[in-house]
Design a protein around this nucleic acid. Structure first.
Length: 457
RNA sequence: GCCCCCAUCGUCCAGUGGCCUAGGACAUCACCCUUUCAAGGUGGGAACACGGGUUCGAAUCCCGUUGGGGGUGCCA
């Protein structure tokens, strides 16, 4: 029996980072074991059946570099199979009709779940009547989980649950059980939030005709990814969509690498490494059981590392959407310097922005700190104008010349370069000044210094 | 309420009864380097939730407490 798992997201319009991590771990486990990962779209609910949702899912997974084996399975296309299974459940007495609405049940039991009200009313599931699974009164459902160990749920604590809605559609427990059986899934790797649904799925599977013809899958419930409040990432207050990260200039390799070390760690402690190595090292047995905080600072660090590993040409290429369209070849020589300072492609674009246009937008606090505060600023700007008009336009010469200006004003180069930097780049921080000046060109450097001088009065 | 899960530095991982005066990484602080900012280098601070057992010996095993999370939908 070969290793076969599946990633089965409900299409919601965006890929949640928690789901992405599940997808990654499924993929890693499969590749490590030389097995297969299937993609299964859990769109049993009519609201989830939208083409654009699917497109989003597809490209996001693709962006992360996760390719799946075989055909994608759509639960929305297997309604007949589920209906047939549910019919069997009803015929064999494992499920029964129920017409209690959610509100009625809530009212009757004071919110403590379903009370088995329709168990013996003999209702036939159909339009307006849902089907509920009859959970045994005694006993328990148990299973082994690779990361949780042995888990046991007493049947007395599980309410009879709906398997078919009043509109005839199947509730996800059924497709889940049926599809895992039909596609001969050997390992189920998913989020911890689904741990409680496992006994229900197993109950159904064990009641299915042929339910024992293939060994039950081994489960691996992954720890949740949480926010600073230790709650699971919510769409409202957290950045949960992986597309958000792509849009902010994170590299898929960095994102994927970071996700891999959330809930798992390589034995040698080396976290940033090629995915092939992670595939080799990854074992579901080593996944930790406690929830993990999604640390953006650490993600930034990973991304910065990956950014620096790229060739300057590759970074420029990757950063296209964050770069001003008017930007030309002047960026080339400066790219290596910016690349070393940017943590994201977005930051890369921001740091290159000063190269565009004749004028530069001055950051006010930089102006106050780097220019106004320095009494020698005007003198330095004047000296620079003079010296830069004649100097050879290469970093070394500009460095020497500026050093001289600094000395003339009795300052260190560190202090003296600041008004020039603000005048030319608009900010007190940025890539090395002299390389920046060379990239910008003599004319624009001079005109920007002149503009700053004018403003200074 | 009931059920399930979790518990080592601020954070993510090491640690699977003695190698732990608990290791690495991110973050943080200091110093070095330095044209700003980064990067890099060096060093510092920082954790086994608590209480009982078991054992010659416990971060590691067991029980309890506390704390946190998840579930308890005709969402998945």
């Amino acid at each position: 029996m070969t290793f076969r798992t599946r990633f089965s997201p409900a299409p919601t319009g965006f890929l949640h980072v928690g789901s992405a991590r599940s997808a990654l771990f499924c993929w890693l486990a499969a590749r490590h074991d030389d097995g297969e990962v299937l993609l299964r779209v859990e769109d049993t609910n009519a609201e989830l059946y939208r083409p654009e949702y699917l497109d989003n899912l597809r490209w996001t997974l693709d962006w992360l570099g996760l390719e799946f084996d075989g055909e994608t399975l759509f639960q929305s296309r297997r309604a007949d199979r589920y209906r047939e299974v549910i019919q069997h459940l009803v015929d064999s007495g494992r499920a029964y009709g129920c017409d209690c609405t959610t509100e009625v049940v809530k009212e009757r039991t004071k919110g403590s779940g379903y009370d088995g009200h329709c168990r013996d009313r003999g209702l036939v599931p159909g339009p307006g009547v849902a089907a509920r699974f009859r959970v045994p009164d005694d006993g328990a459902t148990e299973f082994d989980d690779i990361v949780r160990g042995h888990v046991r749920f007493e049947h007395s604590a599980i309410d009879d649950f709906v398997v078919q809605r009043a509109d005839g559609s199947a509730v996800f427990f059924v497709p889940n059980a049926v599809d895992d059986l039909d596609t001969e899934i050997t390992h189920v790797v998913r989020g911890d939030d689904l741990l409680n649904t496992t006994p229900k799925v197993l109950l159904i599977r064990r009641a299915l005709p042929g339910g024992d013809e293939f060994p039950e899958p081994t489960y691996a419930h992954l720890p949740m990814i949480v926010n600073e409040a230790r709650k699971k990432l919510s769409k409202r207050r957290d950045d949960v969509a992986v597309e958000d990260y792509r849009d902010r200039g994170y590299l898929p390799e960095a994102m994927s690498n970071y996700l891999a070390v959330l809930g798992w760690g390589p034995p040698d402690g080396i976290e940033i490494r090629p995915r092939e190595e992670i595939v080799q090292l990854f074992r579901l047995e080593d996944v930790v059981s406690s929830s993990a905080f999604f640390d953006k600072q650490k993600l930034d660090h990973f991304n910065a590392q990956y950014l620096r590993q790229l060739s300057p040409a590759a970074v420029i290429d990757a950063a296209q959407t964050w770069l001003p369209p008017e930007l030309g070849p002047e960026l080339n020589a400066l790219a290596p310097h910016i690349q070393e300072r940017a943590r994201t492609l977005q930051e890369f674009g921001e740091m290159a922005a000063f190269l565009v246009g004749d004028e530069v937008k001055i950051d006010e606090s930089s102006w106050a700190k780097g220019v106004e505060k320095l009494s020698a600023a005007a003198g330095i700007l004047d000296s620079a104008t003079k010296a830069y008009s004649e100097a050879a336009w290469v970093p070394e010469t500009l460095h020497t010349v500026t050093q001289t200006i600094a000395e003339e004003h009795g300052l260190g180069l560190s202090k003296a370069q600041s008004p020039i930097r603000v005048a030319v780049t608009g900010r007190t921080v940025g890539p090395p000044l002299f390389e920046s000046l060379v990239a910008l060109g003599r004319d624009r450097t001079l005109s920007r210094i002149a503009a700053a001088r004018t403003r200074l009065g």
